[in-house]
């Protein structure tokens, strides 16, 4: 059993994965650094959870870094011991499989989210391009006259008709645009640009 204080590192990404870890009390975060040196939190670990266990299922090194957020008490189980336990106690192995299954489901739903985000960006960009070419300002916003607007947007943005319909309806419901059969009006241009460019205001800070 080991104790770590706030901000203390338990292990670093790419360190040799010698142990599987169990958090007994406290809280910690699993982080990775992006290419431009920004820290991204992958998971928050709460008491009772297993983490840094990749060595237990075959990884040579830790895929991410673990940092304590407060006083964290950690139980370290050497990977050889982990394998021995899994071999001798099917219930331990099953619990690990359950945990991995849960994380896989989380990862899959995240992938689906990202796919949806991408298609929304493409549609937003297509709308901006169209606005620039054929848009004109009206009282209600920037109007794009486009017969069979959904069909054309689908073709221009490489999305299916049903996806375009769903995204436009959602934006219409949120008040970003007015989606009509023969025209689309951009009511809140700034927010559409934010979706298209995936920018946040702090990017300039």
């Amino acid at each position: 059993m080991q104790q770590f204080g706030p901000g203390e590192f338990l292990f670093f990404e790419n360190d040799v994965a010698t142990d599987a870890h169990f958090l007994l009390s406290g809280q910690l975060k699993i982080v990775r650094e992006t290419e431009d040196g920004q820290e991204v939190i992958l998971r928050l670990i709460r008491a009772g959870e297993m983490f840094g266990g990749a060595g237990g299922w075959g990884a040579a090194t830790y895929p991410a870094t673990a940092v304590a957020l407060d006083q964290a008490r950690v139980f370290r189980l050497p990977v050889q011991e982990f394998a021995r336990l899994a071999g001798h106690y099917p219930q331990f192995a099953l619990a690990v499989i359950e945990e991995l299954g849960l994380r896989l489901r989380e990862a899959e739903s995240r992938i689906r989210e990202l796919q949806v985000e991408r298609v929304e960006r493409r549609i937003a960009r297509t709308l901006l391009r169209l606005a620039n070419k054929i848009g004109h300002k009206t009282d209600r916003g920037i109007q794009i006259d486009l017969p069979q607007s959904r069909q054309h947007l689908a073709e221009l943005s490489g999305a299916t008709l049903s996806t375009v319909s769903r995204v436009l309806s959602e934006w219409d419901r949120q008040g970003l645009i007015l989606a009509g059969r023969e025209r689309v009006t951009i009511v809140r241009p700034h927010e559409l640009v934010v979706i298209a460019e995936d920018t946040v205001e702090s990017d300039l800070g």
Binding site: K137, I142, I186, H190, V193
Partner: peptide, 17 residues
């Protein structure tokens, strides 16, 4: 614009706003 942290420069809809 930059000092005021406004992202208008280069915005595709800047000619409408």
């Amino acid at each position: 614009f930059l000092r005021w942290r406004m992202q208008c420069v280069g915005c595709p809809l800047a000619r409408f706003e």
